[in-house]
Structures are given as C-alpha cells and as structure tokens.
C-alpha cells in the first residue's frame, strides 16, 4: 500500500487527477480497448473532477474510450434531485467531457427490481473487463461507498440500509429534515472494489483523520471497511496533512520520505 501525503486538499485533487490522466494515457485506450474507471461522488473527489475537466479541455486527456462505473446511488431519490449521484456526475463531470453516454454507468436506485439492478451491475463490470482503476473516498466512520461499518469485506453490489450516523450526517443536504434522507442505497461491495486492478482512495480534512488511522495503522476490520484495502495488491491512498493528524509520527515520516518516488507517478 502506498500513502501519498500532500499539503492541502487542492494538491490532493490535482495529484489524483494527474494520476488518472496518466493512467488513461499510458493505457492507450481505443475502440477495442476501453479503460475502465470506478468513480466516487462527494466533496472530496469534486476537485479531482474539476482538474480532469481542465485537462480534457486542454486536450491532454480524452474519455472517448473510457468506461465508468459509479460506486453508489440512493434508492428512490429522483434522478434530478441535487443530492442524487446521477445529478452530481452529470453536472460535475459527464456534461463537461467527451464520454459516450453508453459507457457511463450509475446504479439505478429507481429501478423496479433493485436486486436485479445490482446483479446486472456486477455483470456489466465483468463484461467491461473489470475495473482498471477504482477511485473512492471514505466517510468519517471509515466506510467506502455505502459499505457502512459492519459490512462484509467480501460483499458485492447490493441494496444497503444506511446507518443512523449517515442519515444524520446527510440531513444537512435535505433541508435538515432527516425524514427526507433516503434510508437505502445501492452500492458496490467491498469485494467489488477489491476486484479492481488498482484502488485509489482520497482522504482529506481533519474529520477524516481518525478514519485514516483506522484504515492504515490498525488491522483489517469490518467496522472500518476501508481497512480491507490493506490487503489489496495495488492500493494508493492520497491524503492531505490534515488527514494525518491521528497517525503516528513514524508512519507519516516513512511515507513522506517516499514522496520523491510517489511524485514520479504523476510526472509528465
């Protein structure tokens, strides 16, 4: 596992975007060879999308031969609701780039048959050749996608009931009315993400510091689902200084000493 420690959340956004661009370009995708990307939503990856749009507009990267699979979506939330992940992806990323709509996949939380929707999603990932790079963020309680504390670490895409903590944290997006917060979501499983060839997790801010500590300094634990990625052969964690506040000095020092090596990963 690699931990890249950067100064600010802005540098995390830029580093992550550069890495994605480099991975896509090195892959040399084409009509017979699509690059498959797993995508998160939320405030942490927002800056990364902004940067990727900038690189796309500057002609440095194209999404013409990229397929994307989003991590999760609320159940029974209208697609045009500002908190839906369809809305987020459309407004913050897809409408600005050249991706073919046929290649952009997001779980449909309004499907009549949610179980079938989840099973199909797994199938479509396999048909696309598996995810090359899965990008994720984490919650303060260490969840990845909607794999809440206690989720199985071998879980697959499924319907998930959200934890009370998550509902409370989300209420601010729904007019501070907890009754309006969707209580269920569709989410890829920890196992689904583990199948990706590479996993990149973005962690910024002091409120995520304890989760980062749990993710990398303690053992694999299904109460902190992101810790599962300690056992992934290619995990890349990108964090800012604030997110390291709960880490041991020796952990931080060790990874910071590796920064020259890490920065080579995004050099032009």
């Amino acid at each position: 596992m690699r931990l890249v420690i950067l100064e600010t959340s802005n540098s995390v956004a830029e580093w992550a975007a550069k890495y994605v661009m480099r991975r896509i370009n090195n892959f040399k995708p084409g009509p017979d060879k699509y690059f498959v990307l797993g995508l998160p939503t939320g405030s942490t990856p927002y800056g990364m999308y902004q940067k990727l749009i900038e690189y796309y507009k500057a002609g440095k990267v194209s999404f013409k031969y990229v397929k994307t699979f989003n991590m999760d979506e609320y159940v029974n939330l209208p697609r045009d609701h500002p908190e839906s992940y369809h809305y987020y992806m459309w407004n913050n990323f897809f409408k600005h780039i050249d991706i073919d709509p046929k290649n952009a996949h997001i779980l449909d939380g309004n499907s009549d048959d949610l179980v079938a929707e989840c099973e199909n999603y797994e199938k479509r990932i396999v048909e696309a050749g598996g995810v090359e790079l899965f990008i994720g963020g984490i919650g303060p309680d260490g969840h990845i996608a909607f794999n809440e504390p206690g989720s199985s670490l071998v879980s697959r895409t499924r319907v998930k009931t959200l934890a009370q903590d998550t509902l409370e944290a989300n209420a601010r997006f729904f007019g501070n009315d907890i009754s309006k917060v969707p209580k269920q979501a569709l989410t890829v499983g920890v196992g689904t993400v583990m199948d990706a060839k590479e996993v990149m997790i973005l962690i910024t801010g002091t409120h995520k510091a304890f989760a980062l500590y749990k993710a990398i300094e303690e053992g694999v634990n299904h109460m902190w689902t992101v810790s599962a990625f300690q056992q992934h052969p290619h995990t890349l964690m990108i964090c800012d200084e604030d997110a390291t506040l709960e880490l041991r000095v020796k952990t931080v020092k060790y990874f910071k000493d590796l920064s020259a090596l890490h920065n080579k990963l995004v050099e032009d």
């Binding site: 045009d80 369809h86 459309w90 897809f94 409408k95 709509p101 046929k102």
Partner: peptide, 8 residues
C-alpha cells in the same frame, strides 16, 4: 441530462 442517461 435526459438525453445522456435515458437515450444515451
């Protein structure tokens, strides 16, 4: 948005 997600 509808063109993108519905008609693709």
């Amino acid at each position: 948005e509808k063109v993108f997600f519905d008609e693709k």
